[in-house]
């Protein structure tokens, strides 16, 4: 267990292992995304109230779910880097922020597009949209803080502290905003008990959520590999790698 943990801290090892993971994960992700998208958009029955416009949930819901989870991945990586001073955790945390922010942005935009036919307006200050907006602000705050520091090692630690503070606050923010405005439909996917969404619509949604998680993992690994190469560009193993590529 501990040797594995120590190996995680070694850039060449992480670079190699992430490469072999991506070789399988990336095609699988693209396949799942394609299947889920076609299934959801073409082969599910239309909703009897919202017609075809509800189909945007196949993008909106997974993006929102993974955006939120991404914050916790970031905070966990931050905690690891603070406690064990692990550089790879620094990199993971720093790479999470833009991906998470992008997903949050996608969730907001798709939510807004969905809002137009459903509520007749592009933007409604309802609980979940507002929470997503605040989540976007939290992500942007982390990115802004990282960019403001000249000393990148200190920047990573500062961002780790900020993301941990955000982690404590996210449930409070969500509950507050929920209380503030409870106009939205109540959550319709529950992992316990009866689901209020028909299975024919649910299965492609679950597939899409899984595909988005995998997409997040791929994007994270790709960004981390680029960042590792950038930081280690003066070391021997990167030079060797480049020479091997050039041949």
């Amino acid at each position: 267990m501990w040797t594995f943990f120590h190996k995680l801290g070694s850039p060449p090892w992480l670079y190699a292992i992430s490469g072999s993971i991506l070789k399988y994960l990336l095609p699988a992700t693209l396949l799942a995304l394609g299947v889920g998208m076609v299934w959801g958009l073409l082969f599910t029955p239309p909703d009897f109230r919202q017609g075809d416009s509800y189909r945007i949930i196949y993008i909106h819901v997974p993006a929102a779910a993974v955006a939120l989870a991404g914050y916790y991945v970031m905070a966990t990586a931050g905690a690891i880097s603070l406690i064990w001073k692990m550089k790879m955790a620094d990199i993971a945390m720093q790479c999470c922020a833009p991906i998470g922010a992008a997903l949050t942005f996608v969730a907001l935009v798709t939510g807004s597009i969905w809002g137009k036919p459903t509520w007749g307006t592009w933007w409604v200050w309802d609980a979940r949209i507002t929470s997503m907006l605040i989540l976007l602000f939290l992500y942007l705050g982390v990115i802004a803080l990282y960019e403001a520091y000249d000393n990148k090692a200190a920047a990573a630690r500062a961002c780790a502290v900020l993301s941990l503070v955000g982690t404590v606050n996210i449930p409070i923010i969500y509950k507050s905003v929920d209380w503030w405005y409870s106009l939205h439909q109540p959550a319709s996917i529950k992992f316990t008990g009866e689901s209020s969404i028909h299975p024919s619509m649910l299965y492609p949604l679950l597939l899409m959520i899984a595909a988005f998680y995998a997409l997040f993992a791929c994007a994270l690994l790709l960004r981390m590999r680029a960042e590792i190469l950038d930081r280690e560009r003066r070391t021997g193993w990167v030079r060797k790698l480049l020479e091997a590529d050039a041949v």
Partner: peptide, 23 residues
């Protein structure tokens, strides 16, 4: 505390803590 070492912390600090003020 996170921005005190930065020369231009004023605007940044609002970006960091305004979301936390919302509740």
């Amino acid at each position: 505390a996170l921005t005190v070492g930065l020369k231009r912390g004023g605007m940044l600090i609002s970006l960091l803590i305004l979301p936390l003020y919302m509740p």
